[in-house]
Amino acid sequence: MAAAAAAGAGPEMVRGQVFDVGPRYTNLSYIGEGAYGMVCSAYDNVNKVRVAIKKISPFEHQTYCQRTLREIKILLRFRHENIIGINDIIRAPTIEQMKDVYIVQDLMETDLYKLLKTQHLSNDHICYFLYQILRGLKYIHSANVLHRDLKPSNLLLNTTCDLKICDFGLARVADPDHDHTGFLTEYVATRWYRAPEIMLNSKGYTKSIDIWSVGCILAEMLSNRPIFPGKHYLDQLNHILGILGSPSQEDLNCIINLKARNYLLSLPHKNKVPWNRLFPNADSKALDLLDKMLTFNPHKRIEVEQALAHPYLEQYYDPSDEPIAEAPFKFDMELDDLPKEKLKELIFEETARFQPGYRS
């Protein structure tokens, strides 16, 4: 834990890192770190609560700039109880001085990944967590956004079992017609939660990839272990087919990539493993919904509104309290091709509203 900075004593240090967030945020305490930044909790002297502050230093890398800009653009436009918001952003007053960006968010005690390492969940908890994931996802999908990296560590939890989806750095506007060349190379989302079509096709992607990830998360809540822990690309596919069985001819016809289709045709026939054999203690309604989410063919996979209306979630289902976005989200430009200098300018502009004396 960093010592509390005395008023006016300059930035606090946390594990050798400068955290320049005073005077409003003090009493910093280390939480963890990701690929390009550290997260601390801090005391907000204005709202009198502890908050989470993520320090991001992305400006050396085009990919990190892209992810940072995506996350900020999306989260500043989203407003939903099951999606983490941005409360404040701290950065230098000029673009030349801006080396880091500090993002202030609600402090959540833990995440689903940490929880599943230590606790076996009751059916009631599984049901409530799944409902909140789908409630947040309904809003995301209504904005025409794909999260693309749903996994237990991106689901934040607090002691009252509130759940918030975080990390929109890989999110995209849904565009089933656009052929994202190089899709697989830039697709760094965790393999275990990846839909089979991501490994088999490169053309376009749809909201059904997020539903697949939610199915993987439900299976993990039922058993405290990942359902498809593939060691590499082909191993991942083999794990999936080992449980779902061989795809039907109709399902194979959806695979545009001939090499991928021929690979699947070359494999020995596998039978589907019954879900109640894998999860003998699970609620039968939970397994019915799991089956509809972990469907090989993305066109037959359940959609988020149908999933919310499934009998497993009937005690929570309330369409009048499951809000959607006001308007579909649009990125003005494809960020993939922009140089990091341009992305830095866009991050600077996007964060201006939090600067003292800002006038829109």
Rank of each mutant, 00 (worst) to 15 (best):
S202V: 06
P268Q: 12
E349Y: 15
K151E: 02
T351V: 10
L76T: 15
H269G: 09
L294T: 07
E345Y: 15
V21F: 04
G242Q: 10
L130M: 01
Q249P: 08
N45V: 12
V304G: 00
S142K: 14
A143E: 08
Y36A: 10
A92T: 03
L338A: 08
T206N: 04
A325I: 14
Y102P: 04
N27Y: 00
V173A: 03
K340Q: 07
Y263S: 10
L107G: 06
N271W: 10
R359I: 14
L69D: 13
M199Q: 12
D177N: 02
T68F: 11
T118F: 12
N297H: 04
N253D: 15
P328I: 10
D162A: 09
I74S: 07
V104H: 09
L346N: 09
S122M: 10
I324P: 15
H269P: 10
L200E: 01
A92S: 01
S142V: 12
L244Y: 07
V273I: 14
V188H: 05
K342L: 14
A171L: 02
Q97E: 09
K270C: 11
D175A: 00
V101H: 04
L107Y: 06
T160L: 10
L150H: 08
N45F: 13
N262D: 06
E109F: 11
E349Q: 13
I209F: 00
I209Y: 02
I126S: 05
N238E: 09
P339S: 03
I90G: 15
Q355A: 14
T63H: 05
L150G: 05
Q66R: 04
N47V: 08
E345C: 15
I211G: 02
L137S: 04
H80S: 13
E350I: 15
A260I: 14
F279A: 15
I209P: 03
L308C: 12
G242P: 03
A6E: 11
D318C: 14
N144A: 10
V145T: 12
M38D: 09
I103A: 07
I90W: 15
L294A: 02
A219S: 01
W192M: 01
N123V: 11
N271L: 14
F329P: 14
N123I: 01
E81K: 01
N27W: 11
L290N: 03
A219W: 01
P247R: 04
A6I: 10
F228I: 00
E12S: 04
E60T: 15
I211Q: 05
L289Y: 02
D162N: 01
Y187G: 07
P11L: 01
D251G: 03
M38E: 08
E334T: 14
Y30T: 13
D177G: 11
L278S: 10
N271E: 06
P196G: 02
V101Y: 03
M293C: 12
D167K: 06
H239Y: 05
R70M: 02
H310V: 07
D332H: 10
E341Y: 15
G204S: 12
G16N: 13
P328T: 00
C166G: 13
N224P: 12
P23H: 01
Q306K: 11
V14Q: 11
Y193W: 07
N123K: 00
K272I: 00
T351P: 06
L346F: 15
E109K: 01
G10T: 11
P268G: 14
Y64Q: 09
L234F: 06
L163S: 06
S213C: 01
F296N: 04
P176H: 05
T295R: 09
A92H: 15
L241C: 11
D337V: 02
D336Q: 12
A4W: 13
R301A: 03
T26L: 07
S153R: 01
I209E: 01
Y36E: 11
P298D: 14
I198N: 00
L163A: 11
D175W: 10
H310Q: 03
A309T: 01
Y139E: 09
D167S: 06
S208G: 13
K259S: 12
H147Y: 05
R353H: 11
E109S: 12
K55I: 01
A143H: 12
L335N: 13
G204L: 06
I95A: 13
G230F: 10
D318H: 10
A260P: 12
S41T: 05
A260Y: 08
C65H: 11
Y139H: 11
F296H: 05
Y316R: 15
I255N: 01
V101D: 05
V145K: 05
R70V: 05
I140F: 00
L28Y: 10
Q62N: 10
K164F: 07
N158A: 06
L69I: 08
I103F: 01
K114P: 04
Q66N: 13
L289R: 06
F348W: 11
C40D: 15
E186S: 07
E326F: 15
C254Y: 01
F59N: 14
A189P: 03
S248P: 04
P58Y: 15
N281T: 00
I84M: 12
K117R: 04
F129I: 00
S360Q: 02
L267P: 06
I103M: 08
F183W: 11
A219Y: 02
M13N: 06
D20V: 02
P311L: 02
T181K: 11
Q66Y: 09
I240N: 02
L116M: 05
Y312K: 03
L252Y: 11
E314C: 15
P339I: 13
R194L: 02
S360W: 09
S153M: 09
L335Y: 08
E305T: 15
F348N: 10
V273Q: 14
L237Q: 01
P280H: 00
H120K: 08
A4G: 10
A9W: 15
N154R: 02
P268I: 10
L258F: 11
M293E: 06
M199V: 10
D251M: 07
F183Y: 00
H180V: 04
R191E: 03
P319C: 11
V188Q: 01
P356W: 15
T63Q: 10
R50Y: 13
K117C: 07
H232K: 11
H178Y: 06
F296E: 05
